[in-house]
Design a protein around this nucleic acid. Structure first.
Lengths: 237, 237
DNA sequence: CAGTGGTCTAGACCACCGA
DNA sequence: CGGTGGTCTAGACCACTGT
C-alpha cells in the first residue's frame, strides 16, 4: 500500500504535467487541499514538499505555492542519468555491446574504491553503448563479489539494475556521482567512435545499498559532444 | 529565531564531524532523541531527514540511523559550486579579473533565457578566475536589469552574491545547472590559458528568486583538466 | 485584518528487524 | 516479542503577505 502523501503527490504531478494546473498559477491552499483529499494538513505538506523538491512548485510564505514552468527543465531533475534515459529522450535506435564479463582480483585502486580486502574478488563488466549507429559511451562496472554472486553476459545485455533489484532483491539506496574530464585512454580509442575528440567526460558513480555499504563502482565514459548533465539545487539557507 | 529542528540538525552534524558519533554507529532512536532534546518525535524526524538528505546518516527501517563516512564525500554534496569553494578547497592563491561590466540590449538568445522583452536591458559581466597563476575559468554573467539596478566593477571584484543577498536583499532560492562540453570560442582562447586543450566544460546556471522569477543566467567556462563536479542523489522510489 | 505557509505537539497505528 | 523508523491525525501558535 502506497502512502497517502505519495498518492497525492502523484495526482498533482499529473495535473501539472497535463497543464490542468498551468505554470504561474497558485495551488489551492494547504487547508483547502487537506479538505479536498480528505486528509490532514501535515500530510498535504509532505506531498507539497516533494513537489517542491522535484521542481514542480515553489512555495512562498504568506502567498501560496506557485506552479513552475516544466518546459525549462527538460531533463530529469538531479538524479541518476542512465543510458536508457538518454536513449529514450533522443528517440533514436540504441544498442548495448558487452565486451567483457569476468571475475577479477581487484587492483589497488579498486580495493580502495570498493572497500575490499585482498582476499575478495570483484566482477568486471565492460560495455559500449551505441546510439544511432555511433558508439558513444563506454561503461566499466565493478561489483563487489560478496554481494553480487553471479553475473552473466545475458544479464549484462539487459538492465543490470533490473536484475539486481528485482531478481536478487538488492536494495539500492543512493549514489554519489563525480564528473571529471580526462584524456582518452587506448581503450577509449579502441571502443568508441572518438572522431578526433581529445577529451572524454567521465562519470564516476559510487552506488550504496540501504545499509550504507558500497557495492558498485562504475565509470561511464562519454564522448564530450554527446554528453549533458542537469542538476537542480535549492540554495542552502 | 531558528527553528528547533534546524538547531538539532546542526548539533548532530557537529557531533558527526568531530567524530563523537563515529561512522558506522547508529544514532539513538527517535524516541530517545525526542526525550533528550525535549521535543516531539516529528521534530526529531525533520532533523534526521535533513541529516539523511545531506549525506550525514542513512536511515534504515526497523534498525536505526547509521552514521555515514564523511571522508568519502570530500566535496559539498550537490549544491552550487562557486569559484570561492573550489579555491578554498585547493588552498592556492586566487585572483578574479573583471574584464567587462556593461549594460547591454540583450540578443535573441538572452531575451529567451532571461524571459525579457525587447524593451528590457541586461547587465553583462565577464570575469576570469586565476588559480595558482593560471587563468582557469571564464565566467559570463547576465542579470535582469529590472531586478538588479546597479552594478559596478568594484562589486564584481568581490562576491556578487554577497552584494545581491546582503546589500540589495534579493532572496535567491534555487538554481538549475546544466553541464555540457563545447569547443572553445575565440574569447575562450583569448581569456584562458588553454594550453592546447580542444574542449571546454561549460556550466550553464539559471538562478531563480523566491517568487520563481529568473533573474540571472551564467556561463562558467572551465578548462577541462581543472574541472570537477560532485552530485549526491538518492534513488527514486 | 484574514489567509497563507512554517513549525511544533502528543498520540496513534503500521511494517519491519532482531532476539 | 519489543524496538525501530514510516505514516497519519487534529489541533495549536507563529511569521509573513496582501488588502
Amino acid at each position: 500500500m502506497e502512502s497517502k502523501y505519495i498518492t497525492i503527490y502523484k495526482k498533482i504531478t499529473v495535473l501539472i504535467e497535463t497543464g490542468e494546473l498551468p505554470a504561474g498559477d497558485t495551488l489551492p491552499s494547504e487547508n483547502e487541499l487537506a479538505n479536498k483529499y480528505d486528509t490532514s494538513r501535515e500530510t498535504i505538506r509532505k506531498a507539497l514538499n516533494l513537489l517542491a523538491q522535484n521542481g514542480y512548485i515553489q512555495k512562498v510564505r504568506g502567498k501560496g505555492s506557485i506552479v513552475l514552468d516544466l518546459k525549462k527543465f527538460e531533463f530529469p531533475v538531479s538524479g541518476l542519468i542512465s543510458f536508457k534515459e538518454i536513449a529514450e529522450k533522443m528517440e533514436k535506435p540504441t544498442k548495448t555491446i558487452v565486451h567483457e564479463v569476468s571475475l577479477i582480483k581487484p587492483d589497488h585502486f579498486l580495493t580502495a574504491q570498493l572497500n575490499l580486502t585482498d582476499k575478495d574478488y570483484a566482477w568486471k563488466v565492460v560495455r559500449t553503448r551505441e546510439i544511432a549507429g555511433e558508439r558513444i559511451i563506454l561503461d566499466k562496472d565493478f561489483f563487489n563479489k560478496n554481494i553480487v554472486d553471479i553475473l552473466t553476459k545475458e544479464i549484462c545485455e539487459q538492465s543490470i539494475y533490473d536484475y539486481l533489484e528485482n531478481k536478487i532483491g538488492l536494495a539500492i539506496s543512493f549514489a554519489k556521482k563525480e564528473i571529471v574530464v580526462e584524456e582518452p585512454t587506448e581503450e577509449d580509442r579502441d571502443c568508441l567512435n572518438l572522431d578526433g575528440f581529445s577529451n572524454i567526460v567521465v562519470i564516476k558513480n559510487f552506488v550504496y545499498l540501504e545499509d550504507a555499504t558500497l557495492f558498485q563502482y562504475t565509470e561511464s565514459r562519454h564522448r564530450p559532444d554527446k554528453f549533458r548533465f542537469v542538476d537542480f539545487a535549492r540554495r542552502k539557507k
